[in-house]
Write a protein that binds this DNA or RNA. Structure first.
Length: 845
RNA sequence: GCCGAAGUGGUGGAACCGGGAUACACGUCCGACUUAAAAUCGGAUGCCCGCAAGGGCAUGUGAGUUCGAAUCUCACCUUCGGCACCA
C-alpha cells in the first residue's frame, strides 16, 4: 500500500471486508423471490467463463451493473441479481491435456478463485442462486430440453458440409467462424469444410420473428448486426426447364424477377445435385476437373471477392420460362450451394457478378431495365442501382412497366403457369450444436446396435442425466474422450434393451448459456428446468448487460431459446430480456486489447490491494462512458482515489485545516454565511437531480463528475462559518446516499459513523430510500445570459428568470459593450432564447 | 466492396432540444506548508497576436442550411467493429 493511503484515515483495506461480512450476515443481497410486497426487478449480467483469472474487464461489467441494481433497491424494488459460471468449454480440456488435471477439477478450482475475486467487488449479488453449468443438476436439463426439441422437430441430425476446426477438432456453428479468413472463434485457426453427420437446432424456424425488436431496448448497432446476419431477402423462386427430354427443372432464387428477360445463362453451384445428369459427355472431363478443384480449394479461396471468376459450361441448355429462350447452363464456384437453391439465373446487365462472368466468358449481356442514367450500348459495369424512373425494356409485354411493378407482374404470370412464385430466403442457417468434445453436456441419444428398426433412440427422461465419466485418468490429446473411453458409450438400447451405443457428441456451450437466467430462479429444481410461477413473476429480465462480441452468437441463440421454450409452454415470454446494454472495453495503457502476451493487463486484485474496491469501482465508472472503449490510465485512478479521501476528510472533520491552506476557513468573497449555506443547499439538490437523471441512461462518468464538483465545494468551505452546519450536514447526507450505489463500503462506513455521532440507531445505508430533490432549490431565480452580437459572444448580463423579453432587449442594447458594436451598424432584430441567450443581429449602415 | 460506430485541449472525456465549446479528472507549470521530499492546500493551463485592455482562430477536411452548428444536410478523409461473390 502506498504512503498516502497509509497516512490517510480512510482505510479501505479494513472497511471493505468488514462491511462485506456484515452484509452477508444480514442477508442483504438475497432476494426473496416469493415476496409480493415490492415491485420486482430482474437484473442480469453475463456470467463468465471460469478461465481462472478475473480481469478488469469483468469488473467493468459487474460493478456498474451492480450500481444500477443498488439504485433500484433504493427505490424500493425487490432486485434479483444472481451470478454463476459458464463452466463447460475447451480451455478446461486444453488444460487437462497439458497439465494432466481433469477438466472438472481445473474448472471448479478456477471457479473458487473467481468467486473470491468477484466478491472483492462488493457487488450486491445473490449468491444463494449460484449455478455452474458443468454440474449435472444443470446439464441434466440441457438434455431434457434437447429431447423436447427433438420431439418438436427443433433438433435434428443431418449430414451436411460443416466447418471443422483442425486444431480444436470440433465442428463449429456458422456464427463461430469469424471474418474473411474464416477462423475458429476460440483459437483463431482457419477452419476447413467437412461432410459430417451433425446435430442442428432449427433456428431458421424463427427467422422472421427474430427480425422484430418491438418493445425491446437494444443498442441500434446490435439490431443491425442481427438483422444483417439473418439476412432476409424477398424475391421469387423460378423454375427453368432443362431443354432435353429428361423433364428436369432447375429452381433458382432471385431478388430481381423483373430482370427475367435479361437472363442470358444459368449458373449452378459445383455441388448442385443436377450437375452429373446435365453434363454433356463431351464436357464431362472438364466439368469433373472443375468440381475437383472447387472441392479442394479452401473456403477462403472460393469466397474471395476479388478473385477472377471461373467456371465451365455443362453443354446443356435451359428454357427461360417467360420468353422461351434457350440459354446455356454453367457451373461456377461463385454460386454457393448453401444459399437459396444453389443455382441462379444470370442477368449480367443487372448484376455485378454475372456481368463479370459474362465478360470473362463472352456471354451475351442484355439490358432489360432502363432509366435516364443508363446508356445500354456502353455498359462497362452492371446497372444495379434503383432509380425512381427505371422501367422494363426488351421484356415483351412487360416492357414499359416500372421495375417494381414488372417484378410483381412477371411473378404473377409465372405463378399462373406453375413455374414460379414469390419467395423469401434467409442467410441465417440452422445452429450446428454438436461438438466432438468430452467436456460438455452429452447429447441424450442412443444408437441401437441390435435391432435396425430401433435406430436412433431418444433417452427417456427418467434416465437423465447422462453424466460424464469422471474416471478419465489421462485426457487424450487427440479425439473425443467419450469415444475412446473403455465403457462409457456402451449401453443398452432404451427401446429394445439390446446392445446400444451412446451418442458421444456433446452440446455446444452456447446451449448452456441460452437459458441459464431461467434456471437461476430455482437452480436446484428437480422436476423441471424452469419454475413456471417464478418465471411469470420475474421474467422477462428487465436489464441484461454484457459485451457486444456476442451480437450474433449468445444474444441471438438466447432469443431463439425464448421462442422455442415459449412454444413448449415452459416460459411465458418470447423475448428473454427487455433492455440490453453492451458496455465498452477497457484497453491496456498502450491502447491495445489487454492480453498477457502484451503485458498490458491490469490485475484487479493488485488494484484493490492498493486503492480499495470502491476506488476501482468509481474509476471504472468515471474513466469513460460505459459503452465506449478506452485505455486504462494508471494515473487517472489517483483522481478518484483523491476524491474519496477528500470526501472522507470533509465528512469526518469539517472544521479541520490542511497545511499550507491560506484560503481555508473563509466564506466566498462578498457572500454572507446565510447566502453561502443557501448556495450549498441549492448545489446539493441540483447535484441530486443530475445524478438521479444520469442513472436512467447509465451516465456513470458524468454522475461521478457531479459528485466531485459538489465535494470540491465542501472542500472550499471546510473550516468556514457554515462548515458542520445544517446546510453542510444535508449536503453530506445527500452525498453519501448518492454515492452508496457506487462506493458501497465507503458510504456505509461514513453513514454508520454519522448515525453513531447523532445517537441514532444503525440501519444500513443500502436500505435507505433514494432521496428526492427539492424542486424549489433546483429552480433558479437568476440567470447569467450570454449576449451575442451576430452570433459572437460579447457580453454577459444577469437577470431574474422570467424577465420580459422587451425589458431584456432594452437592457442589452443599453450595454456599453454592445453599443460599441452598434456604432456603424443598425439592429435588424434581437433573438432571445428564454433563460439561455440573447443575440443581437445587425447589418452595416 | 457493403453495413455500423466514432473523430473535441498534451491525455481520458463534458456539452440533454441547434444557443456561453473544452465541465470533471489526469498531466504540466507556479506558489503555500515542510529542514527536505512525499502527501496536502491554493492558483494557472485550447492555439495565435498584445505589456495590457482587448482581438483573432479553434470540435477530422471542404461545402451548405441558420441570427447562431461539436450538434442538422451533402461530399470527402481517418480510426475501430461487423459482413464478405448471399443471387
Amino acid at each position: 500500500m502506498n504512503s498516502e493511503l497509509r497516512t490517510h484515515p480512510y482505510n479501505p483495506g479494513e472497511i471493505e471486508p468488514r462491511w462485506q461480512a456484515r452484509w452477508e450476515e444480514l442477508g442483504l443481497h438475497t432476494a426473496d423471490l416469493h415476496a409480493s410486497d415490492k415491485p420486482k426487478f430482474y437484473l442480469l449480467t453475463m456470467y463468465p467463463y471460469p478461465s481462472g483469472d478475473l480481469h478488469i474487464g469483468h469488473w467493468s461489467i459487474i460493478a456498474p451493473t451492480d450500481v444500477a441494481g443498488r439504485f433500484k433497491r433504493m427505490h424500493g424494488y425487490n432486485v434479483f441479481f444472481p451470478f454463476g459460471f459458464d463452466a463447460f468449454g475447451l480451455p478446461a480440456e486444453n488444460a487437462a491435456i497439458k497439465g494432466g488435471i481433469h477438466p472438472r477439477d481445473w474448472t471448479y478450482g478456477n471457479i473458487a478463485t473467481m468467486r473470491r475475486q468477484v466478491k472483492l467487488i462488493g457487488a450486491a449479488l445473490d449468491w444463494s442462486k449460484e449455478l455452474i453449468t458443468a454440474d449435472p443438476s444443470y446439464y441434466r436439463w440441457n438434455q431434457w430440453l434437447f429431447l423436447r426439441f427433438m420431439e418438436q422437430g427443433l433438433a435434428y441430425r443431418q449430414m451436411a458440409p460443416v466447418d471443422w476446426c483442425p486444431k480444436d477438432l470440433v465442428v463449429l456453428a456458422r456464427e463461430q467462424v469469424l471474418g474473411a479468413d474464416r477462423v475458429c472463434w476460440r483459437c483463431g485457426t482457419q477452419v476447413i469444410k467437412r461432410d459430417l453427420e451433425q446435430w442442428f437446432f432449427r433456428t431458421t424456424k424463427y427467422a422472421d420473428e427474430l427480425l422484430s425488436y418491438q418493445g425491446l431496448r437494444y443498442p441500434e448497432p446490435l439490431k443491425v448486426m442481427q438483422t444483417n446476419w439473418i439476412g432476409r431477402s424477398e424475391g421469387a423462386e423460378i423454375s427453368f426447364k432443362v431443354a432435353d427430354q429428361s423433364g428436369a427443372e432447375i429452381r433458382v432464387f432471385t431478388t430481381r424477377p423483373d430482370t427475367l428477360f435479361g437472363a442470358t445463362f444459368m449458373v449452378l453451384a459445383p455441388e448442385h445435385p443436377l450437375v452429373d445428369a446435365l453434363t454433356h459427355p463431351d464436357n464431362k472431363a472438364e466439368v469433373e476437373a472443375y468440381r475437383f478443384e472447387a472441392r479442394r480449394k479452401s473456403e477462403i479461396d472460393r469466397l474471395s471477392t476479388d478473385r477472377e471468376k471461373t467456371g465451365v459450361a455443362l453443354g446443356a441448355q435451359a428454357v427461360n420460362p417467360i420468353s422461351g429462350e434457350r440459354i446455356p447452363i454453367w457451373i461456377a464456384d461463385y454460386v454457393l450451394s448453401t444459399y437459396g437453391t444453389g443455382a441462379i439465373m444470370a442477368v449480367p446487365a443487372h448484376d455485378e457478378r454475372d456481368f463479370e462472368f459474362a465478360q470473362r466468358f463472352s456471354l451475351p449481356i442484355r439490358v432489360v431495365v432502363a432509366s435516364t442514367d443508363v446508356v445500354p450500348d456502353m455498359m462497362d459495369t452492371a446497372f444495379v442501382a434503383h432509380t425512381p424512373d427505371e422501367v422494363l425494356v426488351n421484356s415483351g409485354d412487360f416492357s414499359g412497366m416500372p421495375a417494381p411493378e414488372g417484378a410483381k407482374a412477371i411473378t404473377a404470370k409465372l405463378e399462373g403457369a406453375g413455374q414460379g412464385k414469390s419467395a423469401v430466403t434467409y442467410r441465417l442457417r440452422d445452429w450446428l450444436v454438436s461438438r466432438q468434445r468430452g467436456w460438455g453436456a452429452p447429447i441424450p441419444v442412443v444408437y441401437c446396435e441390435e435391432d435396425p428398426s430401433c435406430g436412433m433412440v431418444a433417452v427417456p427422461d427418467d434416465q437423465l442425466p447422462i453424466t460424464l465419466p469422471d474416471d478419465i485418468e489421462k485426457w487424450p490429446a487427440q479425439g473425443n474422450p467419450l469415444e475412446t473411453h473403455a465403457t462409457w458409450k456402451h449401453t443398452s438400447c432404451p427401446s429394445c434393451s439390446g446392445k446400444g451405443r451412446r451418442e458421444t457428441d456433446t452440446m455446444d456451450t452456447f446451449v448452456d448459456s441460452s437459458w441459464y437466467w431461467w434456471r437461476y430462479l430455482d437452480p436446484t429444481k428437480e422436476d423441471g428446468p424452469v419454475d413456471r410461477a417464478l418465471n411469470e413473476a420475474w421474467c422477462p429480465v428487465e436489464q441484461y448487460t454484457g459485451g457486444a462480441e456476442h451480437a450474433v452468437l449468445h444474444l441471438m441463440y438466447a432469443r431463439f431459446f425464448a421462442k422455442a421454450l415459449n412454444d413448449l409452454g415452459l416460459v411465458h415470454e418470447r423475448e428473454p430480456w427487455k433492455r440490453l446494454f453492451n458496455q465498452g472495453q477497457i484497453l491496456g495503457e498502450d491502447g491495445e486489447r489487454m492480453s498477457k502476451s502484451r503485458g498490458n493487463v491490469q490485475d484487479p486484485d493488485a488494484l484493490v490491494a492498493r486503492y480499495g474496491a470502491d476506488t476501482v469501482r468509481l474509476f471504472l465508472m468515471f474513466m469513460k462512458p460505459w459503452a465506449a472503449d478506452a485505455p486504462w490510465n494508471a494515473k487517472g485512478i489517483e483522481g478518484v482515489s483523491r476524491f474519496l479521501r477528500r470526501l472522507w476528510t470533509v465528512t469526518t472533520d469539517p472544521m479541520g485545516k490542511e497545511p499550507g491552506d491560506a484560503e481555508s476557513g473563509r466564506l466566498p468573497a462578498g457572500l454572507t454565511a446565510e447566502q453561502t449555506a443557501d448556495d450549498l443547499r441549492r448545489m446539493a439538490h441540483r447535484t441530486l437531480k443530475r445524478v438521479t437523471d444520469d442513472h436512467a441512461e447509465f451516465g456513470w462518468n458524468t454522475m461521478v463528475s457531479a459528485l466531485m464538483e459538489l465535494n470540491n465545494k465542501l472542500v472550499r468551505l471546510r473550516g468556514s462559518e457554515i462548515a458542520g452546519g445544517d446546510a453542510w450536514d444535508e449536503t453530506v447526507r445527500l452525498t453519501l446516499l448518492m454515492l452508496a450505489p457506487m462506493a458501497p463500503h465507503f458510504a456505509e462506513e461514513l453513514w454508520s459513523r454519522r448515525l453513531a455521532a447523532r445517537g441514532e440507531e444503525w440501519a444500513s445505508i443500502h436500505t435507505q430510500r433514494w432521496p428526492e430533490y427539492d424542486p424549489a432549490l433546483v429552480a433558479t431565480d437568476q440567470v447569467e445570459l450570454p449576449v451575442q452580437v451576430n452570433g459572437k459572444l460579447r457580453d454577459m448580463i444577469t437577470v431574474a428568470t422570467g424577465t420580459p423579453a422587451a425589458q431584456i432587449e432594452s437592457l442589452v442594447l443599453g450595454r456599453e459593450k454592445v453599443r460599441g458594436y452598434l456604432e456603424d451598424a443598425e439592429v435588424v432584430r434581437v433573438i432571445q432564447v428564454p433563460d439561455r441567450l440573447v443575440n443581437v443581429v445587425t447589418k452595416p449602415k
